[in-house]
Design a protein around this nucleic acid. Sequence first.
RNA 1: GCCCGCUUAGCUCAGCAGGUAGAGCACAUCCUCGGUAAGGAUGGGGUCAGCAGUUCGAUUCUGCUAGCGGGCUCCA
Length: 825
Amino acid sequence: MEEKYDFKAIEEKWRRHWAHSEIYRSDEEEGAQKKYVLVMFPYPSGPAHIGHVANYNLGDVLARYLKRKGVNVLHPMGWDGFGLPAENAAIREGIHPAKYTGENIALLRNSLERLGYAYDWGRELATCDPEYYRWTQWFFLKFLERDLAYKAQAWANWCPSCLTVLANEQVINGHCERCDTLVIQKALQQWFFRITEYAERLLADMEQLGGWPESVLTMQRNWIGRSEGCEVIFRLADSDKEMPIFTTRPDTLWGVTFFLLAPEHPLVDELTQGTPYESDVAAFHERMRGVSNIERTSMETEKDGVFLGAYVVNPVNGEKVPVWTANFVLMEYGTGAVMAVPAHDQRDFEFARKYGLPIRVVIQPRDGSLEPDEMTEAYVDAGTMVNSAGFDGEDGEAGRKQSVPDLLEEKGWGSRTINYRLRDWLISRQRYWGAPIPIIYCERCGMVPVPEEDLPVLLPEDVRFEFKGPSPLESSDDFRNTACPRCGGEAKRETDTMDTFVDSSWYYIRYASPRFDSAPFDDKAVAYWLPVDQYIGGIEHAILHLLYSRFFTKVLKDLELIDFDEPFANLLCQGMVVMGGAKMSKSKGNVIIPDQFIDSFGADTLRLFILFLGPPEADKEWSESGIEGAHRFLNRVWRLVGRYLDVLTFKTQPVPQDSHALRRIGHITHRTIKKVSEDIERFAFNTAIAAIMEFTNSLYKEIEECADAFNTYEGHEAIRNLILLLAPFAPFITEELWEELGGEFSVHQQHWPEYDTALVKSERIMLVAQINGKVRERIEVDAGISEEEMRRTVLESSRIKQLLEGKTVNKIIVVPGKLVNIVVR
RNA sequence: GCCCGCUUAGCUCAGCAGGUAGAGCACAUCCUCGGUAAGGAUGGGGUCAGCAGUUCGAUUCUGCUAGCGGGCUCCA
């Protein structure tokens, strides 16, 4: 074989060979155990960056390992093709988004191919392909049929830079998830998916997600924000107008001393119009106008409000309490109206103190009693009900859960309800590069869904991307003007496109039958492959993509299109590759492109090095200094195999003299097989590689000491297994070395090595002798030594004897196969 | 403010079930090679963040403290 490890030639050779041989193709095989390994598909933004490599390495090693274990593995790749950058490029550089996206896909695919990932490229898909988005539109129609899609006027998060609305989930700390611009509120007619309908199931089915990180489940649970409580109907004084509120603390109803409305609540203006309070309210609105929603409701912001001159009646005691509007009350949560109990709610407490409103204690702590004037903060803990008419003396918890809700329901003042923080999913986007919403507006027939057989509604070509109207699609007359499918008359198309998270909510199902064209997917293929057994991706999708996909899956199940509830059985969230602790991003100019490293060190080195940076879940600090180490390691493997082949060629002594060496070789081989297998199973790829490195070093030592030992069964096995174990991590070099060893193509189709339990155990062990827990001596003994022998061996050791002189032995503790501890006084 | 995680060699991390502190990289010394981003051998280096408890024995278990990181944060 070549003396030098020529990674360039090797990688090119095998890349070509693999492409022709289709060794990574996967088909349904009846009876075979299947695993669907999926890594979140990328948005094609150009060549791969280091983050892609870190991510796709994980799926690749796992997929290769499972295949070698005899599992039928699906490991596909595709493109999240729609999205803003392509459209911004169109505005900036005049390139059509389709062309821009196509070029970027080619660049990214090339990167991934260079890295040698074992994808079944025959299943490649792109969400911006009409054959794909046709079905995205089809799902929209199905959602519409089930009343899960609807159009409504709403205050929407508007990004002034992206010129589009954003879902709540896409607003991070008040800023646009994509471009970081401050998000403002705009009232618009928008399309929504009724995800709130599924809030309870999204919550309850988390029980099936034992294979997900607890942190992700917690985040989703918080996001859904289920709270149990009561709706209580307050009535406007001297009117029969009802003003329902939601509360989780019905036990404090007798402590209500005022009532609050959100600033945007329609009743605020209605109640004050033409009254002396009108100008105060106007001034308040003026104060709120310049303030973003986020700022207004931040905990640090001072409470602010105005009295509206109106009163409501508390149903439980008939008391009239004043109605105010306050900055911290949210229109979107509950009913936009709140009963205020300053004694037992911190926000109400601060508000009451500021405006001199009364505070009435209705829950007393069990030890001590509260005086409203002396309180410095609201008392929110458990206690006994007081000042609450017939409930005095009752435990607050019981009152909250049982007796007060019973009273409300009995008297018709309210009822038990569950409220969610989760909002419906706003899917309208006023952008071009997305799937058009398949709706037509006819003056005669109203809103008409595009008939299924007319799908896809194709994106038009004659669009002015810089168009400043509500959506670039408005600028295409061909697109905008159409005929009504119902009456044939003149009609206009909907010009909003769908949020790209809609596209990615079902791509994992499409992979099962990516070319199927009579339905979104082939039931048989889906029944075989789905759900995804192992999903891998970034923690940044903990809520967005993962929650939407779960929702989609549940709707599809209700549509009887699939028969599973949850799309992803197991989830691995990998950490980011960071630089100086900061996330890599194009804007910071610190993006690392793998291609340069592939050129200088090869794909195998890069894969190995990135996997070796640390455990998958941890953020990994990027440093180039170690990459040479990884490269050196592969060189060592290369030369070791060369040395071994020399042994076979030139040595004529097939029988080794040193049988100890043989046993050691067998032992380290099987110990490494065990370690690497177990590490891969638990995604500890970094330690698996370390174990292979140690194995290599040990083999060097052995071959140095006794080359003859390698011309044996054990020697052959050691070298073979080294290559077999390294193959999922470094696919190119191992394929080449496998060929050199005379192995049958392909190393990636060889069965994963099994270990022999007997050989994993070492024959000799180091017996540790302690006195009072401190190590005093180590003695090498046979592994099978009895407890009695251990005790005797230690007590007979001269060093121990010497140390025990003049001491009284109190107790001797023997840990079988490990140590003896002598307790002395 | 609340919740979670982390803290082991210069760096990145192992140490699963309490029982000799490890690996890779980096570093040092020696050797080899002297067609070039070479190789081999040996070695130094750690009060396992701090304090207390449980134990014959704690890096490992428990509690507290500190530092770092992440998530949530007027949701009624």
